[in-house]
């Protein structure tokens, strides 16, 4: 760790806001403890889980805060390394949803990478997000997280589509239709299904919920109208990354489930059915 980074860490840790943060945590802990007493009295049986989960959450989030604090002091070139690591981790976590599909990690890595990179890079170049470590890492992680979630949903839905429509897919293959055309409807269904959560978030924007970023900006004293505008920009970025990711991943895996002789790969289907 460089001296600069260490100095930044110490500076962040000794900030009066951190002390205030711990006071706020203490108040929240008192509230959680009251809930814990209630669960004990009602014999609900999840008191231990509440303690371990909250403790782990506290350690994780404070550690994340410290790491972000360190990263903010690093050179901006490190942003690409950090984002690449996040993309690889997201692809690894997400590919589990389509683990029975061949090449699902490769497809996830490429899809999340392309979806996130296009959006982050174009928005940074256009100036919609500042080219600072803070914006690139914080907003980049939101984009990658959304791409990961969408990728998981798309792979899961595509796996279900294959499994439940095998007879129809083979019937259409049997009249000489190319595999990519045979599954195009199932690819579209999977892409749409994976985008429903972000579409619903766009639909309910400001009506059902005030999104976290906008709420945070308003609490931090930003102009509420600008906070709303910026939130909308972020939502569209998330949607774009999600849509590109979903399309790329389903298109790629849909090719991997057919053999060279344009047959549905039986090993893949048996693995899905198992």
């Amino acid at each position: 760790m460089s001296e600069d980074a260490l100095a930044t860490l110490v500076e962040h840790a000794s900030d009066p806001a951190v002390i205030t943060g711990f006071v706020q945590i203490a108040i929240a802990v008192v509230l959680a403890a009251a809930v814990l007493v209630l669960t004990y009295l009602r014999d609900l049986g999840f008191g231990r889980e509440l303690i371990t989960t909250s403790s782990r959450g506290l350690v994780q989030i404070v550690a994340t805060g410290a790491v972000i604090g360190l990263l903010l002091a690093a050179h901006i070139a490190w942003a690409s390394v950090v984002l690449a690591f996040m993309i690889a981790a997201a692809a690894w976590i997400s590919h589990e949803r389509g683990a029975d599909l061949p090449g699902s990690f490769r497809a996830s890595l490429l899809a999340i990478g392309v979806g996130s990179a296009i959006v982050i890079a174009s928005m940074a170049v256009a100036g919609a997000i500042e080219r600072t470590m803070r914006d690139l890492i914080v907003i980049g992680s939101m984009v990658i997280a959304m791409a990961m979630k969408t990728n998981s949903l798309a792979l899961e839905r595509f796996t279900d589509e294959l499994s439940s429509n095998r007879a129809e897919i083979e019937a259409v293959l049997s009249v000489g239709v190319p595999p990519e055309r045979v599954v195009s409807e199932h690819v579209s269904t999977s892409v749409y299904a994976s985008l429903i959560p972000i579409l619903d978030r766009l639909k309910s924007l400001g009506v059902v919920s005030i999104p976290g970023l906008m709420a945070g900006m308003i609490i931090a004293g930003a102009n509420p109208i600008y906070a709303a505008q910026y939130q909308f920009v972020i939502m569209l970025m998330l949607f774009s990354a999600a849509a590109v990711t979903s399309m790329v991943s389903t298109l790629l895996v849909s090719r991997y489930v057919f053999t060279e002789a344009k047959q549905l790969d039986n090993d893949v289907l048996e693995s899905i059915d198992a």
């Binding site: 429509n165 007879a167 129809e168 083979e170 019937a171 259409v172 293959l173 049997s174 009249v175 000489g176 239709v177 190319p178 002789a261 344009k262 047959q263």
Partner: peptide, 19 residues
């Protein structure tokens, strides 16, 4: 070509699977 082959040798599956 498997696609050309399948147009020449048609297959009616046990379940109609019409979509």
């Amino acid at each position: 070509d498997p696609l050309a082959l399948r147009r020449r040798v048609g297959f009616v599956p046990q379940a109609p699977a019409l979509g």
